[in-house]
Every structure is written in structure tokens, then in C-alpha cells.
Design a protein around this nucleic acid. Structure first.
Length: 580
RNA sequence: GGCCCCGUGGCUCAACUGGAUAGAGCAGCCCCCUCCUAAGGGGCAGGUUAUAGGUUCGAAUCCUAUCGGGGUCGCCA
């Protein structure tokens, strides 16, 4: 349960009451009235801006209105005190019993504490990674992969029906280049000398693929012309690359629900159908674009093109859908792909792009808006670059030198948990520094270890409690007598736990899984602080061999913290540590 | 030049999308293990939120301009 929405409900009831008494106008909009934890805990447990928001409507001073509202709030059973502060905040404190009861309900809910139906089972499609099938994933893809997967988990935790999807760019010329590169390696496997020209892929990862090809087709390709082997080899190549990519994703624990092939859109009439839909709405026309403003226009020539009128839907310029040779631009199958997503009945679409694709955001949104008549929102989250460091020194990657750091090498070196957590400790639209050494440090500077250590400490005392014959089942703990949990440090730990459902809601609404990581760090910090207080004040320790009732109540608290930590880590895709 | 993102203590970042005295970690100084995991905790110090205006009860957050950093810019996907 979310105590904040509960108290907000009580508040709204009071406000409705004031409406019917004529103190407030009838049909007042209460939607921007909030009940939130105050920044400073000395201000109480919760604060509402109600009086400040509403005072304009009734032409009274905020503090005066606040008095009226707080008179009613003070009568509510779970509320222990109400006061008015600053420009008209109403600060609310809840009774100790209320917090103790909350702890019980957390234990009763177990790992479901924090889940919500905020999404109303709406169908959401999260498209992410979608790397070109020309090689294994590298670090550049990793952030988007982790972000998309965590966002998908977060949304599904919040009651959305989520599909994880990968768009395979297997339609373009790069697949030909890939096939030719494999053919070179294939010739090499027969001892021939080969040269990798510009535009081919010289990476070692193609060697085993070519050997596989040799085993499959023998010598049969050696003396054939390109137009004979190329069509077959294209499919073989893409399949092989997608196997590589799938196994890379596996290393991070990412399972896609759907792999959607760009190629499948060609020759099936789907691109024509999508563009047909736009044409019906009068959004396809032939015209000449203006040259880009201010940019050097040496090679610019006015040219008539088939254009999508994306400016009708918020884009800056209209976008071409046909090349001069009559084939589609990249954008055309992308429109068709999103049209396909719409036809599959999703209520909202989310695309995760690298920041270098920021220029496509407006046109893609325009396309979805046009195709769905503005009914289905497309949200595009951009992931900024990851800068690699080795002991504080920038780690240089060069595509030409071929020393690109691969996802699998990264994960092999630091492990999937560290990779995932660290990638999520920054907002998606801020650049991220990733230092191979620092992420393995075992200190407070490393959030992964800090959170894991908190969890391991809790698990350790729970194991010891079990040895004292305490029933550590969540059900039993939820029924324990918790009235001894009255110390400020214990109550503030409970209050931090109580913020979890609200935090999840905010993070899900804003598509910001990093908030989960920061919350877990905060919660762990409080746990560590509380733990240390046990050194000065024996009564705060979790284990009391001479008083099992007290011990049980303390273990209930510890257990609730571990529940929230593991739920949060589960959203991030990180395994909680039992021991360290 | 157009568009998008970013600018917060010496460093790396938060700030519940407009709330109260802007919070953490690192680095610096001081302190805490006969005691559930010190891989931890407590304290001191450090800020005109790039700059200048504006919007209002109230701005790091919204608007305008300027400066600085990154990305991107008509048939490459």
C-alpha cells in the first residue's frame, strides 16, 4: 500500500467536504495537490501544498486556508500532529502505530509491496538495442540495452503489459557488405589470400562464422559468381550475427520477446500500406526541400523528392521516403515498422535510441502521430554516450584499429550485476563515465557493493535469528508485536521503506529507472547508519538473545528492508547478495 | 547557422517535473571496532545552481537572450 496516496485520499475527502460547505467552489480541480515526503524530515512525515494551491480560488491567505484544512486533518485517527509552516505548507505527522502497521503490511505483501496497477494493463512496446546485425554488441550498445530492459521491468512492475522488442536492420546494403566479408573469410579458410577493402568488416568474429559456412557448403561457393552466393549468404550472415547478439544479451540477462526483421517488410506490401495511410491523409507529396540553414551548401542541389509532410506533426522539415533510384530511404521501412507496432494494438510505444540518433526523434514521432491520428503516444528516450576509463585515464577506442570494447569483454571483466547497476546510476540523457577499476572497488564509492553489502548484512542477522528459533517467515513476522519499534532511527527506516511504492510510481511515470538505483543507495545508507548505532546503543541491535519478542520485531524491520532492496534490484536486473 | 541534450561546492552526481534552509559520495581535517559483517558509521569545512532578464505566493526546475560543452543536419543504415 502507498501511504502517501492513502493520506492524499483523506485530504481530498476533506476538501470535497469544504466544497459542499461552500468554503471552496464546487467542482474545484484538486489534481495538482500533492502529498509528499518533505525534504527535511524535521517538517514531519508528509507535506501538502493544498492551501497554497487553493488559496487563489477563494481569495484568502494560504495560511488561513491551511488552518481550516488542518483542523479537519487533526481529527484523523492515524494523524498524530498537524502544523502549518512557511508560506502555507501543511505538515503532517503520523502516529507510531500507523508506521508499525505499515511495516506489517509490507511483510504481508512481501515482494509485491510496491507493485501497482498504475498501468491498467495497458500494452506497451519497448524497442531497444536494435543494433545493426553486423557484429557483436559493444559498450556503446550496453547502456541502451540495460536501460531499456530496466525500464521494461519497471513498467511491468507498475502494471503495464510490456513487450521487449528488437528491430533487426537486415534490409540495407550493410548486410551485403557483411555477406561479402564472410565470403572473404570463407576463401581464407581455404588458404586463399584476401584483402579487406573499405566498407567490409575485417573483425575476427567472422572467422568462426566462415568456418561454419565452409563446413556447411563445402567448396561449392568458391567458383560461383557473387549473384549466386550473395542471396543465400545474406540470410546465413544475419542469422549468425543475431546468434552472437542474442548470446551477448543473454550475458546481461536480457530476453527479448520479439525480434522484428526489417527485411520482412519488403515485398510484403507493408511499406506501401504504411505510406498509403499517410497518403490518404494528404501527407505524401513530391517537392523540393530547402537547403539546411546556415550549413555550408557546396554540394547542395535542389532536387525533387517524394516527401512525408512531417512538419504537419511537429517536425522541422519534411522528410524524404524515396531515393532517386526509386528505392526506399531508411525512414520508409521505419515508418512501416511503427505502423506494424500500431497494428498490433499497443497503447503506447517507447523507443530507446543512442544520442547520435537524436535527429530522428521528431520525424519518428511525427510518423506515429500521423499513423495513429495522434492516439498512440511514442516516447523516445535517448541514451547518452558511455566514456570508458582505465584507472582514471580515458580508454581510447578506435573502430579502425579494431580495439572496440565488446559487451562480452566488459561483462566478463566486471560481471553482469556491476555492469547493469553502474549503467543505471546516471540519468539516461547525461553522459556516463565508466571506469573499469572503480566499478570493482569495494567501498562506499561503488554503489553496487554498498547496496549489496546492506543486503548481505541483513541476511546475515536473519540467519542468526533463525538459529535463535525465530520464525522468519514473512507471514509470521507480519503478525509480530511491533510496538517496541519506537526509536527515531527505526521509525525513519520504516518511513524510508514507505516511500518505495511512491518512488516506483514516479520512476515509471517519468521512464527513469535510475531513480530506483538512487533510492536503493539512500535506503542502504540508512540501514548502514542504523546498524552502526547498534554499537553505541545496544537496544538498537537486531538480535537480543534474551528477548525473542523484541528480536522478532527487529527482524521484521530488517526483513522489510531486504524485501525492498531485492525488489528494487530485481527491477534493475541485479541479483541481491546473500553473503559477502 | 537550424534543431536536440547538458552546465549544480575542487571532482563525480542527486533534487520526488514549481515547493520550505539546494542534498549525497570522492578528495581535505577530526572521531568511532572487548559489541549482529569497520567492505561500515559520526562530525567539520566547502554553493549567488554558467550569466542577464522575465513569469508568481515560491524557480536549479518554466519562458527569453547570451556564454561554454556534446550530438545531429536532403537518397548511411
Amino acid at each position: 500500500m502507498n501511504l502517501f496516496t492513502h493520506v492524499r485520499g483523506i485530504l481530498i475527502e476533506i476538501l470535497n467536504n469544504l466544497s459542499s460547505k461552500g468554503v471552496l467552489p464546487t467542482d474545484t480541480d484538486f489534481s495538482n495537490i500533492t502529498v509528499e515526503p518533505p525534504k527535511d524530515t524535521r517538517h514531519g512525515d508528509m507535506a501538502t501544498n493544498a492551501a497554497m494551491v487553493l488559496s487563489k480560488l477563494v481569495a484568502t491567505r494560504p495560511r488561513e486556508l491551511a488552518q481550516t484544512i488542518s483542523d479537519s486533518l487533526a481529527k484523523v485517527e492515524i494523524i498524530s500532529s498537524v502544523d502549518i509552516a512557511g508560506p502555507g505548507f501543511i505538515n503532517i505527522s503520523l502516529s507510531e502505530v500507523c508506521w508499525q502497521n505499515l511495516l506489517s503490511s509490507v511483510l504481508l505483501a512481501g515482494k509485491n509491496f510496491g507493485r501497482s496497477n498504475m498501468g491498467f494493463s495497458q500494452k506497451v512496446n519497448v524497442e531497444f538495442v536494435s543494433a545493426n546485425p553486423t557484429g557483436p554488441l559493444h559498450v556503446g550498445h550496453t547502456r541502451g540495452a540495460v536501460f531499456g530492459d530496466a525500464l521494461a521491468s519497471l513498467l511491468s512492475y507498475s502494471g503495464f503489459e510490456v513487450t521487449r522488442e528488437y528491430y533487426i536492420n537486415d534490409g540495407g546494403a550493410q548486410v551485403d557488405a557483411l555477406a561479402r566479408s564472410i565470403f572473404l573469410r570463407y576463401q581464407e579458410a581455404f588458404g586463399r589470400k584476401v584483402v579487406f577493402a573499405d566498407g567490409t568488416y575485417p573483425g575476427d568474429y567472422l572467422i568462426p562464422i566462415a568456418i561454419g559456412l565452409k563446413e556447411k557448403v563445402g567448396e561449392s561457393y568458391l567458383n560461383k559468381s557473387e549473384d549466386e552466393w550473395l542471396p543465400e549468404l545474406r540470410d546465413y550472415a544475419v542469422d549468425a550475427m543475431m546468434d552472437l547478439i542474442r548470446s551477448d544479451l543473454d550475458l546481461l540477462g536480457i530476453k527479448m520477446d520479439t525480434f522484428f526483421s526489417e527485411k520482412s517488410l519488403y515485398g510484403s506490401g507493408q511499406i506501401e500500406a504504411a505510406l498509403g495511410r499517410l497518403r490518404e491523409n494528404g501527407l505524401i507529396y513530391k517537392g523540393v526541400l530547402e537547403p539546411p540553414k546556415g550549413k555550408t551548401t557546396d554540394d547542395w542541389e535542389p532536387r525533387e523528392q517524394t516527401l512525408f509532410k512531417s512538419t504537419e506533426h511537429g517536425d522541422d522539415v519534411d522528410r524524404p521516403v524515396l531515393k532517386s533510384d526509386g528505392s526506399w530511404t531508411y525512414f520508409a521501412p521505419d515508418i512501416a515498422y511503427h505502423f506494424d507496432k500500431l497494428s498490433r494494438g499497443f497503447d503506447r510505444l517507447i523507443d530507446i535510441f543512442g544520442a547520435d540518433h537524436g535527429g530522428y526523434v521528431k520525424r519518428m514521432k511525427a510518423a506515429v502521430s500521423a499513423l495513429s491520428n495522434g492516439k498512440v503516444p511514442l516516447d523516445i528516450k535517448l541514451c547518452q554516450l558511455v566514456k570508458l576509463y582505465q584507472n582514471g585515464e580515458p580508454y581510447k577506442m578506435s573502430k579502425r584499429a579494431g580495439n572496440f570494447v565488446m559487451l562480452r569483454d566488459l561483462v566478463k571483466q566486471v560481471g553482469p550485476d556491476v555492469t547493469r547497476f553502474v549503467m543505471l546510476t546516471r540519468k539516461n540523457d547525461a553522459a556516463l563515465d565508466f571506469d573499469f577499476q572503480k566499478v570493482l572497488e569495494q567501498s562506499r564509492e561503488n554503489p553496487v557493493f554498498y547496496v549489496q553489502y546492506a543486503h548481505a548484512r541483513i541476511k546475515s542477522v536473519i540467519r542468526k535469528a533463525e538459529e535463535l528459533n525465530i520464525d522468519i517467515a514473512e507471514q509470521a513476522l507480519s503478525e509480530a508485536n511491533l510496538s517496541s519499534l519506537t526509536h527515531a532511527s527505526e521509525l525513519s527506516l520504516i518511513k524510508k521503506i514507505a516511500e518505495w511504492p511512491r518512488l516506483v510510481e514516479v520512476a515509471a511515470r517519468l521512464y527513469e529507472p535510475h531513480r530506483v538505483a538512487f533510492y536503493l543507495f539512500d535506503l542502504s545508507s540508512q540501514l548502514h547508519a542504523h546498524w552502526s548505532k547498534g554499537s553505541d546503543d545496544q537496544s538498537l541491535r537486531f538480535l537480543h538473545a534474551d528477548d525473542l519478542t523484541i528480536t522478532q520485531s527487529k527482524i521484521a524491520l530488517a526483513c522489510a528492508v531486504s524485501i525492498v532492496i531485492s525488489s528494487g534490484l530485481a527491477i534493475l536486473g541485479v541479483e541481491p547478495a546473500e553473503k559477502m
